[in-house]
Structures are given as structure tokens and as C-alpha cells.
Amino acid sequence: MIITTKRDFQELMENIKNYKSFFLIGCSECAALCGTGGEPELKEMKEALEAEGKKVTGAFVAKTGCQVLGTKVELKPFKDALAGTECILIMSCGAGTQAAVELYEDKPVYPTNDTLFLGNMTRFQMFDERCSLCGKCILDKTGGICPITACPKGLLNGPCGGTNEGKCEVSPDIECAWVRIYNRMKRINKLEDMREIAKPKDWSAHKKPMKLNIREKKEEAKK
């Protein structure tokens, strides 16, 4: 899921100081789980804005805020509230914010959150980054642990000189990714695979902006 965190409220107030009325859009998926854009957070935001003398014309938690058409349909009943607001606040991720920008071309749209990473939820409201969405998976070579993500340097050929008793030079709070991979490879009897030199990564597999059109592919296959 996409991990988000709330921006500083005073910073948000500074960004939106010229507007008086707001419509809030949350998201029931990742943002709700992160505690940044579910029902309770929208309620909290409404109260905080009102305490600052702002008007909230409406609030809605979209099912999946990054799904552009679905969100458009869901928001139809809020037509008047949206028409009557000066500004839209998005309480999900950067993708959710830009879905709203696409849907409401004439309204200023502001994010209330910072978008951090693609995360695993390890415990309730605890998240770890494990995948960098690099476009070409190497997990089959590294015992299922991604060094592009887990190693601050994204090394592909083993630990650097900064590895220290299993910890990373960048922070003792980080487990050395390559010591983890080494231990894992040993456990699954694959240590010999670690001897193979990994070639420089093909970053052209991650050319921004990425796009995928499965429909087109299916139609081509039909022909």
C-alpha cells in the first residue's frame, strides 16, 4: 500500500490561507489504514478547519481515491457541495491528489499529506518499505529480499565496507540488507548464488512517467 503521513497543520494553513471554503476527500484504502484519510481523520480535519474560521462544504471518503473514474462517479451526489467550495483538500496520497486535479480542472486542489513509500504493514499502523517499484524484479536472485530498497545504496553485489555487526553505516536502526540476504541464502542453501556478479541495473525499465495499458495489449492479442 501507499504510505502517507500528515503534513504539519500550520504549514497546511499557510498554503491555503487565501481560501475560505473547503471540500475534503479521503480514501478508504491506504490512507485510511495509515490514519491520514479515513472517516476519523476527515472529521478531525473538518473540526480543525472550522476552529480556524474556515467553512467545510462537504467531506467524503472515496473508496479508492486513485481510481479516477470510480471516484468521479462516487462524487456525483456531492455536486453542489463541490461547486460551492473554493478549494479541495485531498487526504490521501499524491496519486489521489492528482486524480482530483484531473476531475476538477477549475478548482485548486491541495494535499494534506506527504506520500512516503510503497509499504508493507507489519503491525497495525506500522509500515516498512520493501519494494522500490524499479520495474525489473531481482528478488529471484537475492533470496527474496530487495537490496535496491533495503540497502540505502541499493547495492547489488554484497555488503559495502560500512556494514557493521549486521547493521548499516547509515543508521544502526537499519539491518544491513546484504547480511540479511547472506543469512537467508545460507538458510535456503543458495549461498553459491551470491557469487554471481550482478550486472549494472537496467534503469530504462523505470522511465518516468511509467504507463501500462493492459486493454491495448488485450486488443492487440485479439487481432
Binding site: 540505502p152 545504496k153 547495492l155 553485489n157 559495502c160 560500512g162 543508521s171 550486472k199
Partner: peptide, 23 residues
Amino acid sequence: TGDHPNAGDHKEAKPVYDVESVQ
């Protein structure tokens, strides 16, 4: 490979590491 920017005086720098020592 080189020390991470975190160790230095430009901690906000984007680390490159497009390739590393072996490569």
C-alpha cells in the same frame, strides 16, 4: 562504492549509486 551522503556535509544530496564497486 563510497560513503553514503548521510555521513557528510550535504545530507540532503540524492545518492547516485547507479553502479557500485564491483561493477
